[in-house]
Design a protein around this nucleic acid. Structure first.
Lengths: 218, 218
DNA sequence: CACTGTGAATTGGTTCACAGCC
DNA sequence: GGCTGTGAACCAATTCACAGTG
């Protein structure tokens, strides 16, 4: 639960995960500013836009290098590019989606992934009824074929949208296929994976359930 | 960005937000165990099931009271109930959904919310084409009517599924309508709200973009 | 002179370790 | 004996504050 393994081609060890999680937010705002023609930004201004502090932003960036100019700030488009590079967002990432039920179909049809360079290139489902059908032009394959298919296409990222009780066995097959990162939508407490595999879960119900604590429920 | 206000009917002040965010996970596992007939659980066992440590679980629970029995552990169904109560999950929560586009419709149709006691009772959209149409039996209302409609139904929670550039103005209207908690799906960096309003964002693209850092992108 | 980059100080969260109890 | 509950010790993350620089 605690330790992750970092590839670290730029001696990336020891960078806190919270920092990594903030970078995409920085990246998005920087790209937007760049598109709007803003050329320079200070950590102070960036903090305002992101709801963060100048110190936090400077410290975060300092893990990766020295990107700013004293007295001036940061070159927006340069910094946007560097952060993109740090995150590995300069290439397109092919992804697999497992579970083509209601939720899975919504995910398959969501244009936001492709817009950010994440392309769903393979669909899998257990239901024989669904296998062979197409969604967004992609044929649904059987989960049994998954390990080979994943290897063949060299897919490292998978989105999991299966029922909770199928999540672990399907995960095992994903790992067999060489997947290294899983975005999990299944409402399961714990997905068992080796320590070098990244798992992140999205569960809106859990989020709602923590928000109600702060509401007056008298 | 840092401070939140806690209602605190049980002197809830000073409870870290991370703790609150873990409680729903505990609750889910406990309810499941209870349904399976498990009567007693130790912090050690619970930690195994949740991918957490015994100390973490005991410490978390100790913020709210003493629920266990030394030498034995916790009564599963009792603890499940208590955590539910702490989180305010004993009542049904009516919710509004703003933005009935592709994503919004998927959310409206997702059965998981209602199953957890979160019922979408009002839909809003700006598009005059959509106003009046029904989704899941609920008529879509105009965003202009929102503040009054929210007050009339005493809705405290809203789900935001509008385009990024509409997020802030729509949020302002939600606040005008008395909404206290917002689950935000819009890909926006910062939603400006007063400090007593809870906002949580769900953005799968950001999650993917942070995962790629850990992949070999050579 | 206005900003960055960064050690040092501080704050916040987790884990330890043990006293107390069933 | 086996477990909880909890201060104390530890570790991690944020913020401070200032030296260094274009």
């Amino acid at each position: 639960m605690k330790k992750r393994v970092v590839p670290g081609h730029v001696l990336a060890t020891e960078i806190p995960d919270v920092v990594i999680q903030r970078l995409p937010l920085y990246q998005r705002t920087l790209s937007l500013m760049s598109k709007e023609g803003v050329e320079v930004v200070s950590s102070f201004r960036l903090g305002e836009l992101l709801g963060s502090t100048p110190a936090q932003i400077r410290k975060d960036l300092s893990y990766f290098g020295r990107f700013g100019k004293q007295g001036t700030g940061y070159d927006v488009s340069y910094l946007a590019d560097r952060v993109k590079q740090i995150l590995g967002l300069e290439k397109e990432w092919p992804m697999a989606l497992v579970g083509v039920g209601r939720l899975g179909q919504a995910i398959a049809r969501y244009p936001g992934f492709a817009a950010a360079g994440f392309r769903i290139v393979a669909l899998f489902d257990t239901d024989p009824e669904k296998v062979g059908k197409r969604v967004e032009g992609i044929a649904i394959q059987s989960v049994e074929e998954m390990p080979q298919a994943l290897k063949a296409e060299d897919i490292q990222i998978a989105i999991l949208a299966v029922p909770a009780d199928r999540a672990q066995p399907v995960t095992d097959l994903l790992l067999e296929g060489g997947v290294k990162a899983i975005l999990n939508y299944a409402p399961i407490s714990l997905l068992r994976v080796p320590p070098d595999i990244v798992v992140r879960s999205i569960d809106p119900v859990l989020v709602l359930q923590s928000m109600t604590f702060y509401l007056n429920s008298y």
